[in-house]
Simulated assay, not measured.
Amino acid sequence: MADLGRLDVLVNNAGAPSLGTVETVTPEEWRGALAINLDALFHTSRASIRHLRDTRGSVINVGSMAALHADYGMVAYSTAKGAVANLTRAMAMDHAPEVRVNAVHPGFTLDTGFTAGLTPDSVVAFLTSAEGHWINGKILRANGGMV
């Protein structure tokens, strides 16, 4: 805000994997996974929402395919990313029509030869553009058709 004077788009793209089951994840690992993968999005959104309301802006929460179906041995990560989906829906209802809130759930996020073209960049750009102005509260898979 100090540098540009306005905020039009917030892309909440925080994430870190956390391995383990409900039996093996320590309470510290559990809280750490929630802090990075969920709490960071909440706090950034909370600090930004009034500025986005002024510009009729947009929030994109970047989740994971793990939000839509749990991954083996990733209980904390899958839980946190699942909560990102519901945070998105709640924010979309609470702040419409002034602020649009959507989520993109990518599969692969590393751009290697195998995963080239499967990154969610174009989906985020579309959702924040004039063409995506009527989309709100949606959870979009951006995984190149891979499950």
Rank of each mutant, 00 (worst) to 15 (best):
A16G: 13
H51F: 14
L38Q: 05
L41H: 15
G15M: 05
S18H: 13
S64Q: 10
G20H: 08
A47Y: 02
A67M: 10
N13S: 12
L41N: 12
E28S: 11
L52Y: 04
S45F: 07
T55L: 10
D39L: 04
A16C: 05
W30P: 09
L52G: 06
S64W: 02
N61V: 01
T44W: 01
N37G: 07
A14V: 09
P17F: 08
I60F: 03
A16M: 13
R50D: 15
P27C: 06
L68F: 01
S58V: 14
L41M: 13
S45H: 00
H43R: 11
E28L: 06
G15T: 02
G20M: 08
L34F: 15
R50K: 12
I36P: 00
A33R: 08
A47S: 11
D8Y: 10
R46D: 06
D8M: 13
T24Q: 09
D39P: 02
D54H: 09
T24D: 13
V25W: 10
P27I: 08
D8G: 10
V62I: 11
A67H: 09
P17G: 07
E28W: 04
V22P: 08
I36L: 11
V22H: 08
L41Y: 10
L41S: 14
A33Y: 04
T21S: 15
A67S: 15
I36E: 02
R46G: 01
M65F: 11
N37P: 10
G20A: 11
L52P: 07
S48Y: 06
N61I: 04
N12W: 07
M65A: 14
G32C: 03
S18V: 05
W30Y: 09
N12Y: 08
N13Y: 03
S48D: 11
H51T: 04
P27K: 09
D39C: 01
G20K: 07
A47R: 12
L34C: 08
S48P: 07
L10V: 03
W30Q: 12
G57S: 02
R56Q: 14
